[in-house]
Amino acid sequence: MPTSTTTEMPTQDDCDIVKDCELALLHGAVRGDRTSAMLLLHKDFHEFGASGVVWDRESILDMMEAEAADGPVDIKAVDVVTTALAPGVVLVTYDSVTPTRRAHRSSVWVREGGRWQVRHHQGTVTAD
C-alpha cells in the first residue's frame, strides 16, 4: 500500500492508516501495552483531556496502562473523519462514547521517521 512522504500531502491510504492507529489507541490491548502505545505517541505528545487534565506522553501512558489493568476498556468511536491538513499531517475527529460520557475528540497526527504518531489530542465533553 503506497503512502506519501513528509513532503507530500497525505494520501487516502495515509488517512486510513492514521484512522486505524487512532482507533487502536481506544482498545485495551494497546492501552495496556506500553510498548505498543509508545509507538503511536509522538515524543512531544500532549493532550487536553475531556476531564480537564493536561497530559504529556509519560502521564498518558501511565493512565492508559492503569486503566487497562483495572478491567475491560469500553470506548467507542463514532463519526470518525480524517482530513489531510499539510504534508505529513492528518487531523482525526470523532466522538468517543463510554458508559459514562460522550466527548468530541480531535487528534493531530504527524509522520516522522516513516511512522505516523499522534502529536496532539483534545477531548471536550458534550451532552448525549
Rank of each mutant, 00 (worst) to 15 (best):
Q117K: 11
I75S: 06
A68T: 06
T35G: 11
M63V: 05
L25F: 00
V81W: 13
A24Y: 06
S59V: 03
L26W: 01
V92N: 12
M9Y: 05
R31N: 04
M38Q: 07
G28K: 09
A66Q: 14
T11A: 11
H46W: 14
A24W: 09
F48A: 15
A66I: 08
T82R: 05
I75E: 07
S107R: 03
V110Y: 08
V90A: 04
M64C: 08
H42N: 08
H120I: 11
A127R: 13
V92G: 05
V30G: 02
Q122E: 11
V73M: 04
D20L: 11
S107W: 07
D128Y: 09
G88S: 02
T98E: 01
G114M: 09
L91W: 03
R34Q: 12
A29R: 15
M38C: 13
I17C: 04
V90E: 01
T83V: 01
G88T: 07
S107E: 02
A84K: 09
V54Q: 07
E58H: 14
T7R: 14
E65A: 01
Q122G: 10
R31I: 07
R111G: 01
V90R: 01
A84I: 05
D62R: 03
V18C: 05
R31Y: 07
T124Y: 10
P72T: 12
H121P: 06
M38N: 10
T93M: 04
G28L: 03
T100E: 09
A69W: 01
T124K: 00
D62W: 02
V92W: 07
E112K: 12
V54C: 07
G114A: 10
S4C: 10
R115A: 10
R57H: 08
